[in-house]
Design a protein around this nucleic acid. Structure first.
Ligand SMILES: [Mn+2]
Ligand SMILES: [Mn+2]
Ligand SMILES: [Zn+2]
Ligand SMILES: [Zn+2]
Lengths: 126, 126
DNA sequence: AAATTTATTGCAATTAAGTTGCATTAACAA
DNA sequence: TTGTTAATGCAACTTAATTGCAATAAATTT
């Protein structure tokens, strides 16, 4: 079940994502909004925004949950299946638009695949 | 630091991996060896076996840690970078030998990439 | 505008995978 | 056989995330 009522919490969280385009981890948002929004609220609103196709989520190498804006998803058509890039130096994570083709595997039906690329980001490369 | 002394714990854990070729999650091993090996021991031995290039690890979609036998890794040359396939029906996870090429990303240096493919496995496809 | 409904929130407690500290045990070299 | 210290078991801890529940507040109805 997604969002039904427009509340300040939703506004506050969405603002964080429009500020800049990079992904933000759930814990980071909890810290960043401490005193403003309760931890539970943060997790619950993020979950609903994902349900509605406004955000998409993924786990980084440590199993930490990250969220980022969807491009053109809806509740029915939730299709943000692209790689994510995490900088090993500064920790920044963002969505990558490159297309990675997963070859067919014999006797297996592929439904979805997630790709986490790690390396040095554009700010840390020099 | 890897394994220094040959102990029954190491033997017991390695046996689980030689039984069949699929990956096994750490929690599954803790459960499976309950009463035989302590939880902490399981985690610690797995960690050491990975250090030595005997096992490699990765996280599934829920952030759960899985381990599988390495093919030809050593302590120095630890290079098991291949996709993993998790069945959405039965939960089984195994290593996949297909080669997925990650295209270069502008201004970013790729160090490593991990690919988790999800779908229906060869046992569950019918 | 007031009353009603119920989605949303905050708070405290809980869960669960994984880790740490420390005393005890045992591999193995001397 | 003895001494060194790696490995183990146990309890306590850590931490991201979840749950139950009472209080609050959107939004719909009267
Ligand atoms: Mn993304
Ligand atoms: Mn593997
Ligand atoms: Zn960076
Ligand atoms: Zn299966």
């Amino acid at each position: 079940m997604g969002i039904i009522r427009k509340t300040p919490s939703i506004e506050v969280l969405l603002t964080e994502f429009t500020r800049n385009g990079t992904a933000i981890s759930a814990i980071e948002l909890v810290k960043r909004l401490d005193g403003k929004l309760n931890k539970t609220t943060v997790y619950r609103v993020l979950d609903k925004l994902e349900d509605d196709g406004i955000l998409h989520s993924f786990l980084d190498k440590k199993g930490i949950k990250w969220y980022a804006k969807c491009n053109s998803c809806t509740h029915d058509k939730h299709f943000d299946s692209h790689p994510h890039f995490q900088c090993l130096n500064c920790g920044k994570v963002d969505c990558v638009t490159v297309d990675v083709s997963i070859p067919k595997i014999p006797n297996r039906e592929i439904v979805i695949s997630q790709i986490l690329i790690q390396g040095t980001c554009e700010n840390c490369i020099n």
